[in-house]
Every structure is written in structure tokens, then in C-alpha cells.
Design a binder for these strands. Structure first.
Lengths: 224, 224
DNA sequence: CAGAATCCCATTCGATACTG
DNA sequence: CAGTATCGAATGGGATTCTG
């Protein structure tokens, strides 16, 4: 590199520029996304990010750890594998991911029919939530079983809590072989009984409540 | 590229992933930033982005035009040069830049003493604004003359309007040879009379109002 | 001034194979 | 499972030159 010696740094005090140095590298933000709903293992992250190589994942995890976005934790003996977990500051990146997602979804070039990870879908719910409709379902418990991933979503009066774990005691549970199958129902206006017939989707429990829950979410109008 | 054919695309329906495809490439978002306060010429953008080469700037402008973030406009005869201007959707990226900046500024590794473009500084005001203090200065007109760039900032009761142009009739005007000199006064707690003595800064007009205006802005606390 | 076109080196990436 | 090591191919980006 030349005498100005800026391999990849912008030398710019602007916070936006610094953010791009921290998470702007290819794959970095998607790794953060996969950790946004709780710690994960190397292999699980990799499986959620088709196309990433072990090498790149290793490099990105190292760099995100170095900058303090995440930490590597060795779990204690019973199940002695290790996991990657966001720091408090790492978790604070969610609003930024939401703004990015909301903005990009306004492009007509955005294709919501592409494959999707389970975490992506669950996070998209929080992003595309219409808070004014929350009162209609506040307090209910909606489960999601997407492939091997399990989540519980609990709308409050002001936002939507999402946690990993078996949806025991949920009022309704969506079952799907993968996240992409659910997208059509949530955002694409595809009738749920059609998904149940042909896509291996199943709604258990209070179906009426489940459908009212889905009504909380909508894609933004196209701006370009 | 292999049969999965993903030269640089994520093949991911996630809006955040798509946003990174649109503006995640090196320099792209900084180019958008430089246009956020109005159209600019190729050479002006380049001068605001030390380190970018003509080739890269050309490539990025072309790709941002292709995706609909900006348009190239040929100004009519009197001054027949051309400018680059954000589309409505491009302008809609400001909140996203603000979230990125707010988040990154919470890192202890963020260095606000680095060089800064004039546009960066003006945008940072909107980002770091404390809206609860707006009533104290709403309606006043504060000018900025930073090198060759001129801006007018007008706080309303809910936000801060910023436009390019000579700050005629402003209640107070900050003069500075460059943006970096002002950063110390706005965010670093450096006394203004010290900046005026040693940094070539000057405050014209209602000095008391100018200092109250500066009190609207503060960097966020460190989270890491 | 506003780029387009070339050249060429450095970096990066993906694939594959290997290891504790 | 969680990486490391290596290698060839692709890409990126700076410098330079050319053009209207």
C-alpha cells in the first residue's frame, strides 16, 4: 500500500465510517445477525450462512472478538463445547440492523423469496412489526419450530420479545421445515391452508390467535 | 465462481443482508454520506474522501446509480457541469447512517480526533442531537463556514434542518478552516476561546446563542 | 474537469485436505 | 466438532495514461 498506509481504514472520525470498518466487511453483519437471538456454536453459524467458508468464518469471528462485538465462551463440562456470544454492545446493534433491513426492503430489487435463516425470519418480525396493532395480541405466547430451531415470541404492549427454546405452553405454534416456507404466509399473502397442504407447514393450538399474530407484520411500501 | 454462483451476493432474503449488498462495499456509504446534504460534483466528492481513487469513485457511483440510490444529473447550460444526487430512497438512508454512527461511537476504539469532512460534521449534529433541548433554541439560524463549504442550521421544535448555502442573515456563524477544528469545541469540551486563539476558528454574531446551540449535542456514553 | 482504459500487484476467497 | 494449512483463482485497488 502507498505511503498513506491505509490498508482498509478510512482515517475518518465519522461514526458511520467507523461502523463500516467494524461490521462492514463481507459476512460480518450476518454473523452478528445469527447471534442476535442468543449464543451459537461455530458449526451452527456456518450452517445458517450458506456460502461462507470455514476460513472466512474463523477470520470474522476473530476480528469481531477483537473489536469487542462478541466473546468466545467455553461452556462448563456438561457439554464442553464452546459458543460465540454477543457482548452488550454487540446486542445493541439490533436497531442498526433493523434500519438497514427496513431501508433495503424498500427497493424493488429486494427479493424476499430467497432462502432465509430461522434467526433472520424471527428478527424480521421485530423489524416489520406494526406496534399499533400490539394491543390485540399482547400477552399471548406464539411458538415457532423451524427445522431444528425453536423460538417463543411474546408480544407485550410496546414490543415483541423473542427467545430461543422449546415453545412449551404456547397458545399456538407454527411448525415449518424451514424459514422460507413461512415467509409466504407472513409477508407474501399466501393462504396458510395452502402452505399446510403443500409446504409441510402446520399451525398447532389456537389457530385464530396465530393468524391475528401474523397480522402484526407487513413489508414497507417500495420507495424505489 | 463455483456452481453456487455467488460472486458477491449472499442469496439471502434478509433485508439487512441485501442492504449490505447495496451499500456495504468499501466507500459506498461514505459517498452516500457526502451527498446527504445535497448534490455534489465528482471532484468535490473525491476531495472529501481522502484515500479514494478516481477508479473506485467511478465504479461506486456507477453501481449506486444502477441500484437507484443516486442519479447523475447534467445541469443546464449556465454552469454545464454534472452532479450526483441522491434519489428519494437514497435520502431515506440517513436514519440508517445515524444508527450506524451512534452504535460505533459507543466503542472506546472510536477516535473522534481523526480528520472529518464538512458534511460529516454537519450530519453528526443531527445524529447526536438531544431533542429535549431543542426548545431553548428553536427558530434561530446558525451558520457554518467550513473551508469552502457553507451551511445553515435551523433548529425547529422537533428536529434540526440543515441546508447548503451562504448563511446570510444567520444569528451566529461559526467559521473554521476545516471540520476537525470544530469537533473539539462541539464534542470534546475544548473552550471556544482557545480554538479561536490557536485553531483559526471564529464565532461571528450572537456568541451566547451560538454556545447554547452547541449545547444541543453530545457523544453517547461508551458501551465497550 | 470528469471520467474511461490499461496495467499490475496485493489481498481475499473458496475449496480441499488435514488435525487435536 | 472446531477449527488450521495450503493453494489457485478471482477480485480489488493504486498508479498511470488518454480523451472530450
Amino acid at each position: 500500500m502507498g505511503q498513506s498506509g491505509h490498508g482498509k481504514w478510512y482515517y475518518d472520525a465519522c461514526g458511520t465510517a467507523f461502523a463500516m470498518e467494524l461490521i462492514g466487511e463481507r459476512w460480518s453483519l450476518l454473523i452478528v445477525r445469527e447471534l442476535m437471538l442468543g449464543p451459537r456454536r461455530f458449526t451452527d453459524i456456518r450452517a445458517s450462512l450458506p456460502g461462507i467458508s470455514a476460513k472466512v468464518l474463523t477470520e470474522r469471528l476473530a476480528s469481531l472478538e477483537e473489536t469487542g462485538v462478541l466473546v468466545r465462551r467455553h461452556l462448563p463440562p456438561p457439554g464442553k463445547f464452546q459458543v460465540y456470544e454477543l457482548t452488550a454492545w454487540g446486542y445493541a446493534a439490533e436497531p442498526l440492523m433493523q434500519e438497514l433491513g427496513r431501508w433495503a426492503a424498500q427497493s424493488s430489487a429486494h427479493d424476499p423469496t430467497l432462502p432465509l435463516s430461522a434467526v433472520s425470519l424471527m428478527l424480521s418480525l421485530r423489524t416489520m412489526l406494526d406496534p399499533s396493532r400490539l394491543p390485540y395480541v399482547a400477552g399471548c405466547r406464539i411458538g415457532f419450530v423451524i427445522g431444528e430451531d425453536r423460538f417463543l415470541a411474546v408480544p407485550t404492549r410496546t414490543d415483541l420479545a423473542i427467545s430461543r427454546g422449546a415453545p412449551d405452553g404456547a397458545d399456538a405454534v407454527f411448525h415449518s421445515p424451514d424459514a422460507a416456507c413461512l415467509v409466504g404466509g407472513v409477508y407474501g399473502g399466501v393462504p396458510w391452508d395452502e402452505l399446510e397442504r403443500s409446504a409441510g407447514v402446520r399451525i398447532a393450538g389456537n389457530r385464530d390467535l396465530a393468524l391475528r399474530f401474523i397480522n402484526l407484520f407487513a413489508l414497507p411500501p417500495k420507495l424505489a
